[in-house]
């Protein structure tokens, strides 16, 4: 799980062009959107959906689940692990 979390952090930094942020700066449990976290927005959400499809071959079937899946790096890693097991 730790390896997957670190990989996700690096991918998000690259895809979202988060200059001046290193993987160590991102807490796995911190919210990705809104205040108190990375402060991502709706366009970033679309980028994350594409990231999951492209890098992990996972398609989010129900858009309603997005809020929970993309809450934090940890929740994304949990979802990826769960999908791979399934």
């Amino acid at each position: 799980m730790e390896e997957l979390i670190n990989k996700l952090k690096a991918e998000i930094i690259e895809v979202l062009n988060l200059e001046d942020i290193s993987p160590e700066d991102i807490e796995a449990e911190s919210p990705l959107f809104g205040e108190g976290g990375l402060g991502l927005d709706s366009i970033d959400a679309l980028e994350l959906i594409v990231l999951l499809e492209k890098n992990y071959e996972i398609k989010i079937e129900n858009p309603q689940d997005g809020k929970q899946i993309f809450f934090s790096i940890q929740s994304m890693a949990d979802f990826i692990t769960q999908q791979k097991v399934a």
Binding site: V15, I43, L46, E47, V50, E53, K54
Partner: peptide, 12 residues
């Protein structure tokens, strides 16, 4: 990507 997985930022 064979017209798949297109990200919005570059398009916008």
């Amino acid at each position: 990507n064979a017209e798949q997985h297109l990200t919005p930022t570059a398009f916008m």
